[in-house]
Design a protein around this nucleic acid. Structure first.
Lengths: 232, 232
DNA sequence: GTTGTTCGTTGTACTGAGTACAACACCTTT
DNA sequence: AAAGGTGTTGTACTCAGTACAACGAACAAC
């Protein structure tokens, strides 16, 4: 199972088990689990038992499985790696009340971006992603801003760097538009991007102009709080 | 390694690897990691590589390791299992502004309780736990309330059931006092407990009386929203 | 310069752990 | 009563996982 070899197959199988669960299918029977990961039922049972011993999986009364609380704890430690929650969370809430759109912070993680923090808009029509979800770097404003300020060259990225922000509509998902600016920490090093997202029809030129100012003020405040230069 | 046998040792080793990380030691070198889990460096390296392939672990530039973003995603799915975040989160925020203390929701998970949601007080002196942390059931008001309404017998628990709430000061942690009430869902089945926590000196009889009313109103609202009886 | 220590990494040989299969008991449904 | 569906356990085979030792590269002490 280890693609290039030099790994531990059983561990990767266990990881696949965890990945079989989604927001919709948050509880799975042994058989269903075995079917999804394409392993024998007995194999899945033994791995699941070991995962459950560490609360990475939990067994419910009808013998089916669901994800365990340890994952929430570990996910929280992952988040604390960035040492930013105290500053970011209230700031996102403030952004939402000011702009009416959902606000989020994305950071680069390898060749993807991860939604690290998020605060949903109060409006009935709103964009709502999940914290921890990964998205491509080269699609959508939050990703492109990260690429631009990570030194990616190309006419688009040069423009973003010059403008200090970027906006896209329906690029990654036809249903959502987004407006993003960079956040810095420890001087000039990029921390990630701060973004507003919502339905494209609420991202008119006028709305963008108005929200951009609010967003940039927040981004500067954030950058300064994390020891970074305010940015261009 | 599987205590009673009938598990997969390599998987449990991998779980131990993840558990070696804490809020303080959020990044560990290979050697340190091997020391903590008491395994050979080569073994740890191979397991870590497999975990990293699934983003459960991430390698940083100096070759040390940290927890991966997939954990946040999975932790989020765990949380969504309870289908309650939309209702609970704003309610906790409201509780904090009304009472000035930190508010949290605990659910039973086996023979422990897990902090499922949490909103910190704005005050400089405040109790601040981590979402996903586990605590004993028989220490602290949130735990005892869960035991009482899960049918645990005994004079203390009979009293709690009769009163409809419980308060403790310094029982689990000498530094914190708490006030907790039950939450129900789907009729009479217990969902968990809703609690306020803070420094003991802010939990005078007067303060408790005042906050209890606010807490109970919130708990009833919550129970009804989740299809449960409002409770006694 | 050395010597010593740490770090991460790779190859090896051994053996015991992980695996798939089959059979089982227990349910419903037909 | 047969057929499908659970979850479970025991088995035997073999290959995957392991610890060990050795390596090169940094870095510090002297």
């Amino acid at each position: 199972m280890p693609g290039n070899s030099n790994g531990v197959a059983a561990v990767e199988r266990a990881a696949s088990l965890l990945e079989a669960f989604t927001e919709r299918d948050f509880t799975l029977s042994l058989g269903e689990l075995a079917r999804r990961v394409e392993l024998d039922k007995s194999t899945v049972l033994r791995i699941a038992r070991s995962l459950a011993k560490h609360q990475l999986l939990v067994r419910n009364e009808d013998a089916s499985w669901r994800l365990g609380p340890k994952l929430m704890k570990l996910g929280n430690i992952y988040q604390s790696t960035f040492r930013a929650s105290d500053i970011i969370e209230p700031l996102l809430a403030d952004l939402v009340t000011r702009t009416g759109e959902s606000a989020a912070v994305y950071v680069r993680e390898g060749d993807e971006r991860v939604c690290l923090f998020r605060h949903d808009s109060h409006q009935s029509i709103r964009h709502s992603a999940r914290v921890g979800s990964t998205y491509p770097l080269d699609r959508g404003a939050p990703g492109r801003v990260i690429l631009a300020f990570n030194g990616r060259s190309g006419s688009i990225y040069d423009e973003i760097r010059k403008a200090g922000f970027h906006t896209t509509s329906g690029e990654r998902d036809p249903q959502v538009a987004s407006l993003a600016v960079p956040i810095f920490r420890d001087g000039q090093s990029l921390f990630g991007s701060l973004a507003l997202t919502g339905p494209p029809d609420r991202f008119s030129d006028d709305a963008i102009r108005k929200n951009l100012e609010i967003l940039q003020v927040a981004a500067r405040k954030l950058s300064v709080a994390m020891g970074g230069d305010p940015g261009p």
